[in-house]
Design a protein around this nucleic acid. Sequence first.
DNA 1: CGCCATCCATTGAGAAAATCAATGGAAATG
DNA 2: CATTTCCATTGATTTTCTCAATGGATGGCG
Lengths: 304, 304
Amino acid sequence: MPSAPPPHMPAPLPPFDLDLLRSFVTIVDSGGFTRAAERLGRTQSTISLQIKRLEDGLGKRLFLREGRGLDLTPDGEILLTYARRLLGMAGEACALLMEPEVGGVVRLGTPEDFATAHLPDVLWRFSRAHPQVALEVQCDFTVNLLDRFARGEYDLVLCKREPQGPAGGVRVWREPLFWVASDRLILDAGAPVPLVLAPAPDIHRKRAIDALDAHGRPWRMAYTSPSLAGIKAAVTAGLGVTILPKDMLAPGFHIVNAEHGLPDLPDIETALYRQPGPLPKAVDLLAEHIVRSLERTADRTAAG
Amino acid sequence: MPSAPPPHMPAPLPPFDLDLLRSFVTIVDSGGFTRAAERLGRTQSTISLQIKRLEDGLGKRLFLREGRGLDLTPDGEILLTYARRLLGMAGEACALLMEPEVGGVVRLGTPEDFATAHLPDVLWRFSRAHPQVALEVQCDFTVNLLDRFARGEYDLVLCKREPQGPAGGVRVWREPLFWVASDRLILDAGAPVPLVLAPAPDIHRKRAIDALDAHGRPWRMAYTSPSLAGIKAAVTAGLGVTILPKDMLAPGFHIVNAEHGLPDLPDIETALYRQPGPLPKAVDLLAEHIVRSLERTADRTAAG
DNA sequence: CGCCATCCATTGAGAAAATCAATGGAAATG
DNA sequence: CATTTCCATTGATTTTCTCAATGGATGGCG
């Protein structure tokens, strides 16, 4: 079990019935109870009672019955937008379920750390929903990812980018970066900052060096490792500082931004890019799945 | 009536009942029919029948009953994600409706053409849903908008930006730009291109001039007007070419990109920016409303 | 190996709720 | 003022939902 979903709270009170909502929007779209009844194949009295049920359940009036004309109340207007979204989503779900099982291959490129931190659960769920889809996930540096993506070697890539990075992709993640070190590190305010970073074509590396240079702070490269595990090991050993998002801190790591006068770092963004043109349906399913899954998580994390 | 919603199609068949879906996710989250029954205050047999109803309605099995263990089928996995989203959305709607009516003032800055083309319906719906909220909408050029936004004179601004423009905002619109002219214009391949554009701090103006300069194409400013109406009038009169998104073409306008060898233009993006820090709830409601409304429209427009 | 506990499926009865057909009232139409 | 067009209401009918009880299957345990 990669990660148990959070225990769903007792669920307060959704007095929502999709059938009622459908009647509701049909009334609005067709401009009357009677016409809606025809369109839905029900009696007019049924529609009338359905709306009554909705209104009673919410304790709010939805329509202004002013003689002939039929108008939405403010609450009705609010409900209408949600009703449309709910029905649309339900229809989407239905359509997807009725479709024959999709198969094929999806080639996904991603940074290693991102894959480790956020993808396992997401990909696990996807592979369970679409067991006939073969996932080919490759981890690499952002520059290489973009390069191979441009050559068409990936259908989808997740890429770190500056907040104002290349357009076109869908942002799926955004979080602040921090300077981190372990207790063992003794940082001399005057001495060059010892850095533990990935080798050259790495966006974290560029970030760190640019930020230090911009502040005129001297630095030296203390340790270089292409893998996140290697970097963490070196930091744990007290060989230097590295930069990480908050939720990737290993045990014993501390954020040392202020304490050592290190410059603040701009947020890091991860975006999903899709190869243009027609691709197997599985590709878009995965893209959608990734965006949806991460957006929920990100909302929770970066609330406020 | 600003614009009647599209006639809702007969609605195929959503055999979805939110109560059933809640039982479904509760089973998954609690790991069993029996436990879910307890949590929902129902009998176990009821839960069992509810799932049966769901499965029969969809014609798909949702659980693999392998002896003791309980596992989701691929279809079950798909439904699960949608069920969570549907329930979440329903809860959100409910919470919003139960909240006391929000009031206050929202100050929104926007480019004139965007306001004219896309906002009327959106703002009309919002004002009906939240009649106690006073909207103060101001149209201006993007540079002025950003300037005043930075000074805190707007709670929200819609801004045109380059596809890789400043970060932070939410993209709400994206569309291609075209060179357009009327029949009356006679364009000499060698002569400078006569331009009809808004005065200096305008992003379309910058776009046009940059693109022409980059291609070494000579140009001259034929007509300048700060308002969209003025520009359209000048183009109709055959005074020159301007650049517009496709859905803003006036009658008699033609796209003349290829025909006169004018350079292609990068897409134009419109993004919504929110003043940081705590703001009245009405501000976030409007922001959410704008994003949601435009995303639906944009999906339809730019399908594919 | 057999007993017991646990869990889900099934069944039939009772309760609750949705639907319908018919009727009534209010507002616009001519 | 008669007429038409709506929506609300009512009571009977039908459908659906729920429950309690029972049965079958599986896994743990002595």
